[in-house]
């Protein structure tokens, strides 16, 4: 479904990703783990078009993502829940969701998508007239995920959805992943919470200093990760 080949990217003269190749197959949940500053967020930004790679290929269901204007990548079926949520704090929950469904095709389905999102997050329905910035961290994360689901994505990119949340809320977020996948959405998730994420994904990549250092089934990495914890500090 998603294929990255030899992707290099960075900020100005600083290179953050070095020849990253990665694949996500339809229906899978794939994790990207790695220490702080490894380039995980940069990788997500490259996929959703927030930054353009300096080299490499990127395709989504065979379509060349790099030939698509960045603001139309969401129409290819890719939705990105950015790191630290990035809601529009002074807009209501429902206006935030409306922004998630901005693309022309999504507008036509607004009511239908809204019903799906409210079904998944009944809490958001209760709070739909409330300013997004006034909600708790967990509710904001649900709103951020809901906003991404408004575009009816086939691939959902989640960048550290559990960061800054209380442990019970973290469990809830990970449990939701199952529901989202059951709806047929493929997931690529970045997490610092290595142990927990490796229990919900099938495969994972270990990124360090901008390079893929290991890849494999979640179970294998889980064992390996225990070993690596000592010297990687992840």
């Amino acid at each position: 479904m998603l294929q990255l080949t030899g992707v290099r990217a960075g900020y100005g003269s600083f290179q953050a990703l070095f020849d990253v190749s990665l694949e996500v197959r339809a229906g899978e949940a794939v994790g990207v783990i790695g220490p702080n500053g490894a380039g995980k967020t940069t990788l997500m930004r490259v996929i959703s078009g927030l930054i353009r790679p300096t080299a490499g290929q990127l395709t989504m269901e065979g379509v060349d993502v790099l030939a698509t204007p960045p603001h139309r990548i969401v129409e290819l079926g890719i939705a990105h829940v950015p790191e630290s949520r990035r809601l529009f704090p002074r807009m209501t929950v429902e206006d935030n969701l409306k922004m998630g469904g901005f693309a022309p095709a999504a507008r036509a389905k607004f009511r239908q998508r809204l019903a799906v999102v409210y079904e998944l997050f009944p809490r958001l329905r209760e709070r739909r007239r409330q300013l997004a910035g006034s909600m708790s961290g967990g509710e904001q994360q649900m709103c951020a995920i809901g906003r991404a689901l408004m575009s009816e994505p086939r691939l959902l990119l989640l960048d550290e959805p559990s960061a800054g949340l209380a442990p019970v809320v973290v469990d809830h977020v990970f449990a939701l992943l199952g529901t989202i996948r059951a709806a047929g959405v493929t997931v690529l998730i970045v997490e610092q919470n290595v142990q927990q994420v490796l229990r919900v994904v099938e495969r994972a990549y270990l990124l360090k200093a901008g390079r893929i250092r290991a890849a494999g089934a979640a179970g294998e990495l889980l064992d390996g990760a225990r070993l690596r914890e000592a010297y990687l500090g992840v």
Partner: peptide, 23 residues
């Protein structure tokens, strides 16, 4: 929708691309 995008862009410029908005 355009009005919502105008309000949104005033709050977070960078992620408008993710919403499918051509700033």
């Amino acid at each position: 929708y355009t009005g919502a995008a105008i309000r949104a862009i005033a709050q977070d410029r960078q992620i408008m691309t993710l919403m499918g908005v051509d700033s």
